[in-house]
């Protein structure tokens, strides 16, 4: 018989179940597994879904299915949708600041500054949607009577291992990949995955077509090799792979299907610095079209 009983609170909080984000829906892992996520203070925060190989494959299928529509959407439309995502983020600043602080620790104002930087970063990338083709494409003055134009196109389905930098780092790797028309399977930070799932709630309510972003939580060492080896994934961003041996193994696996690979940075990335266009251009192909001229 308990000697002491906690007094029931005035109102019992409704806890959130953190799930995966695949094809615009929030399924649990098909494996039925989850893992406990601790905050910076070491206290339990919530359980996150522990994604499996099958979840990776489902996510790739969803990303491939979404690719035609998203890459075929007008650049203006993609820019509008990305900007809309920034608007939704702005509306949830407090919530994200709380989650970032819980995950990472630090002061409330530092967490707020991070969230603001993440929103501004998203707006920066949103604006690239209808400009990158002008910066990266050009007419080619060939020595003959031909029209000849080179323009960038999205690479396809991109697998991304996100860094452990709950919102700013996550946003900085995600936005540049999708703004040009790629679709994504993103493995969230293993230790700080919860803000990513909350970001998925924003994506789900911002007119972003289902499947453009698919977000998995779990063990990177378990899921990333399936992503690296999947024949329907065209490129791999290894920014968030902290284990150097795993990064080499993933790059090697990716070579079997000649994926474009963005290696992890040599030194820790400075997410606060203003980005260049490298994260956009790494996941672009150049298409050159010829046509004869003549009366």
């Amino acid at each position: 018989m308990p000697t002491e009983q906690k007094a029931a609170p005035a109102r019992l909080a409704v806890r959130k179940t953190y799930k995966l984000f695949v094809g615009g829906k929030f399924p649990r892992s098909e494996s039925g597994r989850s893992y406990p996520v601790q905050g910076a203070d070491g206290e339990f925060v919530a359980n996150a879904a522990l994604a499996s190989r099958k979840d990776v494959r489902d996510a790739v299928v969803a990303a491939r299915k979404a690719f035609g529509g998203w890459s075929g959407a007008t650049a203006y439309n993609r820019g509008q949708i990305l900007y809309r995502i920034a608007e939704m983020l702005e509306g949830r600043r407090d919530q994200f600041a709380d989650e970032v602080r819980t995950a990472r620790g630090g002061t409330r104002s530092a967490a707020r500054a991070d969230v603001d930087a993440a929103i501004d970063r998203w707006v920066w990338y949103a604006g690239w949607a209808d400009k990158i083709a002008q910066v990266r494409g050009n007419a080619n003055p060939v020595a003959g009577p031909y029209f000849n134009l080179s323009a960038p196109e999205p690479t396809g389905v991109v697998g991304v291992v996100a860094p452990t930098e709950p919102l700013l780092g996550l946003v900085s790797v995600l936005a540049p990949v999708i703004v040009t028309g790629n679709t994504v399977v993103l493995l969230a930070s293993e230790t700080q995955p919860l803000p990513a799932i909350t970001l998925a709630e924003v994506l789900a309510t911002s007119d972003l077509p289902g499947g453009v972003v698919n977000l998995l939580t779990g063990r990177v060492a378990e899921t990333a090799p399936w992503l690296a080896g999947h024949a329907d994934v065209n490129a791999l961003d290894l920014t968030g792979v902290d284990d150097a041996d795993l990064a080499v193994e993933l790059e090697r696996t990716a070579a079997d299907t000649l994926k474009r690979v963005l290696r992890p940075p040599l030194t820790g990335a400075d997410w606060k610095a203003e980005p260049d266009t490298d994260r956009l251009t790494t996941f672009l192909e150049t298409k050159t079209v010829w046509h004869p001229k003549g009366a």
């Binding site: 003959g144 299907t257 000649l258 474009r260 150049t286 298409k287 010829w290």
Partner: peptide, 30 residues
């Protein structure tokens, strides 16, 4: 990576050449 319309196998130093997918990566030319 290269689409020839009403012509084929035309090459020029100003014109980028290279593939998508398992045809490789990077561009040569231009």
């Amino acid at each position: 990576g290269v689409v020839w319309a009403n012509t084929f196998n035309k090459f020029d130093p100003t014109s980028p050449f290279g593939g998508y997918q398992e045809s490789g990566y990077g561009r040569e030319g231009g």
